[in-house]
């Protein structure tokens, strides 16, 4: 449809919009999904390596000895945890569990905090 406002400005500066906690959990869900997708080839590769021989299996266990790889792994652990928790939250909401606003706010917080704690635990274990 041709509106009289074709070519009109739009206000859509995301930094000037206050996002509710559910939106932040949701952006995290998307971001973590992308990270996991990007690392999927590595997972397939790791599966292959882990089955090849004893030394290659051991090499996978030693991945975290290099700090940059440990850091990547911590990020992936966060991504997996956040995506999983946020996913369970959505699955439950789909069947009407916790889909009320107050509960949804609490569960969004819970997802963000729980994923953070797990990432922190991984960081403490591999990065120190």
């Amino acid at each position: 449809m041709r509106a009289r406002s074709a070519g009109a400005p739009k206000f859509l500066n995301l930094s000037q919009i206050r996002f509710p906690i559910g939106a932040i959990a949701s952006i995290g869900h998307r971001l973590s999904g992308v990270l996991l997708m990007v690392s999927l080839p590595l997972l397939a590769l790791a599966l292959d390596r882990s089955l090849r021989s004893e030394p290659e299996f051991a090499a996978l266990r030693d991945l975290v000895s290099a700090p940059w790889r440990a850091l990547l792994l911590v990020i992936l652990v966060w991504a997996a945890a956040h995506h999983l928790f946020a996913g369970v939250r959505h699955l439950l909401a789909d069947i009407g569990v916790g889909s009320r606003l107050a509960q949804a706010r609490t569960s969004a917080w819970a997802v963000i905090v729980a994923a953070g704690i797990i990432a922190l635990a991984a960081a403490l274990r591999w990065l120190s």
Binding site: L47, L51, F57
Partner: peptide, 28 residues
Amino acid sequence: YGSWHALATSTHGAVLIVVFFAALCLHG
């Protein structure tokens, strides 16, 4: 390595791994 290899190459281990990746790829 031994126990992982045995698990992954058992019939249901292998099937479940393939199913896992199939679901992962579709979901992605």
